[in-house]
Every structure is written in structure tokens, then in C-alpha cells.
Design a protein around this nucleic acid. Structure first.
Lengths: 97, 97
DNA sequence: ATGATATTTAGACAAATATCTAAATAATTG
DNA sequence: CAATTATTTAGATATTTGTCTAAATATCAT
């Protein structure tokens, strides 16, 4: 169910996707509202949305003709744990991902 | 001086580089010792070392003909802060990186 | 100095990725 | 239903990236 580390890190590695995350910090927004803030096409943004969804960093909900994107803040905990594990020198079993 | 967010996230986005970080968690190692653990060429690894160094995730020290790689754990704090800022809904000024 | 060992750099190449335009799908409104 | 609006998907393309081989640089040992 939960996305693997590679998916999450790759998702975070693009500046446009991090900016999308930032714009969703305060409130959920429709795809169009997000698109108005970025200088790239809606098709390109849709591509980024897919990657963010794969990483479970955002969730979607259809509201009429709009699709509302929300930040999934619980993933922050996951990423923090991954990073902790990555840098930790303890001997616990790891999935090496 | 400190590397920007993009550099760090890009560095962490590759599984080989994360594995290099993992192998350096317990102790510093020479380039050759690290290379013995990976199925890719030393040239390819050197490329990854450069990226990790650019992100300040590892530090190097020459010891005779060897070059010893060490994990720079202080960056963990930086990355944690970046992530916190990325997901936080507070209003503080951000560099948008 | 010469040869051996350790590591990096240069250049080439295939795969992955971010972007675009055009077309398709989905929901609303007249 | 037809037109409009919102969003995604498909396919193409240029750039980036991870890897390789071959050559260069650096240090050590004889």
C-alpha cells in the first residue's frame, strides 16, 4: 500500500513538485487553481500530479468538474523515518530501499 | 556554502547513492572499499561520490593513495528542516527551493 | 625513475524525465 | 443533446542522468 522510498524521493527531487507541495500546505486546491500559479501547461502539471499521487504525497477528490488536490501530511512522518533510518548507525534490519 | 535543496534532494533520489550513505553509516570507508560492495564500475561510483559531495552529504579525506569517504550527519538536520518547511503550513518566509 | 595500486576525469550512449501539442474523457449548463 | 469548462491521456521531443570504457592523475614501493 504505502509507496516505496524510491517513489517518494523521486517525487521530492523535482522543484516543480516541491512547489506544488508548498502551495498545498495551507489549503487544498483544484488542479486549475494550482495550474494558475505555474508557468507550465496543465498537461505537464497533470504529469506531476500523477507522480505526487504515486508517492502518496497528495490525495484527490472529485468535486463536480473539479478535482481537488490535498497534501497528505502523514507522509512527512514516513519520510522523516526513512531519513532517520538512512543516516542512523544503529543495527536494525532495513529494507535497503 | 551549504548546498541548495535541489542538490540534496537530487542526491537522495538515486538508490545507489542512498545505499552508499547506508554503507557509510557505521564507519568511514575508502572509495575502493565502497566499490567492493557495489556491482557497478568505480568510474560510475566516482560520479555518485561527486554528487554526494556536491550535496555535502559526504566528506572526503585523502589517506595515502586512498580517499576516505565519511558521512556528514549534520546534513540530516538540514534535510529534516527542509522537509518540515516543505510540509509546514506556517507563514514564514521561504526560499521556495 | 619505474611499476603497481587507487581514484578520478573525459567522452559516448541508452534509459529516464520534463515538457509540449493535440486529442480524449468527465461533468455542467443551456 | 450540444456546447462549455476542467482535467487527463497519448505521443513526440529535448534534456538529464546513470552507466560504461579508456585515459589521466596521484600516491606508494622498489
Amino acid at each position: 500500500m504505502s509507496p516505496n522510498n524510491q517513489t517518494v524521493f523521486k517525487a521530492l527531487a523535482d522543484p516543480t513538485r516541491r512547489a506544488i507541495i508548498k502551495t498545498l500546505r495551507k489549503e487544498s486546491k483544484t488542479a486549475g487553481a494550482i495550474a494558475d500559479e505555474f508557468p507550465i501547461t496543465r498537461a505537464s502539471l497533470s504529469h506531476h500530479f500523477n507522480i505526487l499521487k504515486s508517492a502518496d504525497l497528495v490525495r484527490t477528490e472529485r468535486r463536480g468538474q473539479h478535482i481537488v488536490y490535498s497534501l497528505n501530511v502523514t507522509v512527512l512522518d514516513d519520510v522523516a523515518a526513512i531519513l532517520y533510518d538512512l543516516f542512523s548507525s544503529t543495527d536494525k534490519v532495513s529494507d535497503r530501499s
